[in-house]
Write a protein that binds this DNA or RNA. Structure first.
Lengths: 344, 344
DNA sequence: ATCCCACGTGACAGCGCTGTCACGACAGTC
DNA sequence: GACTGTCGTGACAGCGCTGTCACGTGGGAT
C-alpha cells in the first residue's frame, strides 16, 4: 500500500480511503490512486484489514459433504452471491463423527469468519449452544433451530403431498425409506417421516413400523436386504416413498433387477426433483436448493451488516408434487408376491 | 492471547509457542497453557498470525461450479485433507464468463491464500500467465498446463478405451457427443475427442465431423435436435460415446422415448463412472475424482511447505473401462432407420 | 571450582492495514 | 476583514499475533 501511495504521490491513508470507496476523496486523486494500484497489481490484504476492523470478509459454511446434489446446488448459488458482495466463501467439510466432534470442540471458524451457515445437520442442543457463543451470526440451513435464524424447506408438507398422492392412487400399504449419512440422520429425514405418518393418520391408516426401512443409495447390499424385508412382510407394500430421489432411483433399479416392475407392481416416489428424476421419469416432490442457498446467503449478509436485525425469523420454502411415471393406481392384488423370496 | 497468558501465569510468547506446538516448552507449562486456552475458548486469530508469518493458512480453489459429481467428489476428499493439515478451504465459484473475466482481472486470491487449485477450466495462455505472478503455487487440476504442476486423468487413453470397446463390438459408425458449460469447453472435452479420433484412425475409419454433435444433459430441446441430427444422416451411427455419464443417461432417456432401444438399436457409452451409471447399467470409463482431489491437495501442501520442490511434475491418473448393459454387438442392419424422422 | 552450553522463558519490535484526530485551504456569512 | 464551517488530506497509534534476541538456570566437561 505504501508503494501505491508513493506512486500516486499521496499518503497511505488516502490510498486506503480510495480503495475502500469512501466518498471523501477528490476525483483526480481517486483516479491517480486507482491507476497506480492497477499498475502495481495491488490487492488489499484481508488479513491486515481484518485485524483492525474485526471483520474478516469471510462467510463460512459447515457441510456434511460436497458430494451431493443438494449441497452442490445450494453452494453454487451461494458462492457467486457472496463474491458479488465482496466476500469469500470458506467451506468446512465434516464427513464423519470424528471430524464433527473435533469441529465443535475446537470451533476453528471462531474469529476467522463473519458468519456461519450450518447445512443439513441435525444438531444436538449442546452443539447449538456451542455455536451460540461463537461470536458471529449462525444461520441454520435445511433445518429448523428454535429461536435462531433458519432457512429450510417445508419437509413435513412435502412428505404429506407425496404420501397423499400415493393414497389418492389407492395405495394403503405404503413404505417409507429414510436414509442416513456418516454423520447420522438429517433434520429432513425426521421431518419427512413425520409428514408421511401424518398423511397416513389423516387417512385413518394405522402406522406400521415394519414399513419404515432405512436404506442408502450407495449400499447395494443394504438396499437388497431392505427391499427383501419389505417384500417378505405378510402384507407387502404396494408403494414406497423414498426420502431422496437418489435413493428412489436405486430402489427402482434394485426392484427391476428382481423382476418387479415399477410402477406396475410397486409405485415409487422420491423427494428433491434431482436431475436424475427426469431421466428416470420419477415422480417426486420438488424443492429448490438454489433458492435455499441464495436466501441463506442474503440472510447472512443482512445479519452481518445489521446487528440489530431480527435473529429469530425463519424462512420456510415451499414444495411441489411432480407426478411422473413411477407412480400409478394400485393394481388389483396378485396372488404371487413370492418373487420377494427369489432375491439374488 | 494475553488473557490466556495471564490465566496460565506465563508470557504471551510462551502461549504462542505452546499453541503452535513448538518443542521448547516444558510439559508442565504446556499443560497449564492448554487448559487455560480451553477454559477461555481461545482460538488463534489467523489474520493476526498471517500478518506476521506471511502465510494465510488458506488453500483456495477455483471451480466452474459445485453442482457436479466431479467437483463434489473431488472437493469432498480435498476438504478433510486440508483440515487435517490445519488449513482452511476457500472456494471461488466462477459460473460464467463475466465472473471469469472479473476473477482474472482482480485476482482476489492474491495474498489471501497460500496456494490455488484451478479445477477443470481450459485456460488461455493469458490467464495462465496471470496466475503465474500470483505469488503462490498454482496447481492445475483436471487439465494439463505445460511446465506447471498439474493433476489430471488420462482422458485420451480413456476415450481410446471407450471407442475401441465400441469398435470391438463391430460398430463402424460411432458418434461422439462433447458437452459444454457456461464457461466453455473443458480441457477434458478436447482430450476425449482426441482419444475418440485416435481410436477411429487406428482402426482405419475416416473421421466424419457430422458424427460429432455437442449436447448438454440439462437441455432437453438441444438433446432432441442433436440426436435427430445423428439419426437423419444417410448412414446414422449405431453407437454413441458421450463425454460424460450424465449426458449419456440423458441421451438414453431421449432415445428410449423415441422408441429406439439401447443397446439393441444403439449402443451408448459414457465417461466418469458416476453413481447414476450404476442405476442405468451404463457402460462407461471410470475415473476417480476422489483420488484427484486427494493427490492435488497433497501436492498443494507439498509445494507450500517446500518451495524448492519440483514445480513441473505432472500426475496423470489412470482410467478403466467398465462394460455394462448399454453397449452390445452391432445388430445386423435393419432396413427402417426412418423412426428418426418421427421425433416429437 | 570454573567454564560452557543447552534449555526454557520473557521483552519487544513490527507485520499492513484502518480509525481517529489534526490541519490547512477555501467558500460563505455578517 | 474576521469568523465559521466544510472538505480533502496526512500523521500516528494500535489491532493480535510471531520472530528474534537476551536472560537466567542448571548439568556436564575440564
Amino acid at each position: 500500500m505504501a508503494d501505491v501511495a508513493e506512486r500516486a504521490g499521496v499518503s497511505p491513508s488516502t490510498v486506503s480511503r480510495t480503495l475502500r470507496g469512501l466518498p471523501t476523496v477528490s476525483p483526480e486523486v481517486r483516479a491517480r490512486v486507482e491507476q497506480a494500484a492497477r499498475e502495481l497489481n495491488f490487492a488489499v490484504s484481508r488479513q491486515a484489514a481484518s485485524l483492525v476492523t474485526g471483520k474478516t470478509g469471510v462467510v463460512a459454511v459447515l457441510v456434511p459433504t460436497l458430494n451431493s446434489w443438494f449441497m452442490g446446488s445450494a453452494l453454487s448459488s451461494l458462492g457467486p452471491l457472496l463474491r458479488a458482495a465482496g466476500r469469500e466463501l470458506n467451506v468446512y467439510v465434516i464427513p464423519d463423527m470424528t471430524e464433527r466432534i473435533a469441529f465443535f470442540e475446537r470451533l476453528p471458524a471462531r474469529r476467522n469468519a463473519d458468519a456461519l451457515l450450518v447445512f443439513g445437520f441435525d444438531l444436538t442442543t449442546e452443539e447449538t449452544a456451542r455455536l451460540d457463543d461463537l461470536g458471529m451470526p449462525v444461520i441454520y440451513v435445511s433445518q429448523h433451530a428454535e429461536g435462531r435464524p433458519s432457512v429450510y424447506v417445508d419437509d413435513v408438507a412435502g412428505a404429506l403431498k407425496a404420501t397423499r398422492h400415493l393414497l389418492n392412487l389407492g395405495h394403503r400399504r405404503i413404505a417409507f425409506a429414510p436414509t442416513t449419512g456418516a454423520t447420522g440422520f438429517s433434520f429432513s429425514s425426521r421431518e419427512r417421516l413425520l409428514g408421511y405418518q401424518q398423511a397416513l393418520t389423516e387417512a385413518g391408516i394405522p402406522l406400521d413400523d415394519e414399513l419404515v426401512v432405512t436404506m442408502a443409495a450407495d449400499d447395494t447390499r443394504g438396499l437388497i436386504t431392505g427391499i427383501g424385508q419389505l417384500l417378505s412382510l405378510r402384507e407387502p407394500p404396494t408403494a414406497l416413498f423414498a426420502e431422496q430421489d437418489e435413493l428412489a432411483v436405486a430402489v427402482i433399479h434394485t426392484l427391476r433387477r428382481t423382476g418387479i416392475q415399477v410402477p406396475d407392481r410397486m409405485s415409487v416416489i422420491g423427494f428433491d426433483d434431482h436431475q436424475v428424476a427426469q431421466w428416470f421419469d420419477l415422480s417426486t416432490v420438488a424443492q429448490s436448493p438454489t433458492d435455499m442457498g441464495r436466501l441463506a446467503g442474503e440472510l447472512a449478509l443482512r445479519l452481518i451488516d445489521d446487528t440489530a436485525a431480527d435473529h429469530t425469523r425463519h424462512i420456510i420454502l415451499p414444495t411441489q408434487l411432480i407426478p411422473r411415471a413411477t407412480t400409478a393406481p394400485r393394481a388389483t392384488p396378485q396372488p404371487d408376491e413370492g418373487t420377494a423370496e427369489t432375491l439374488p
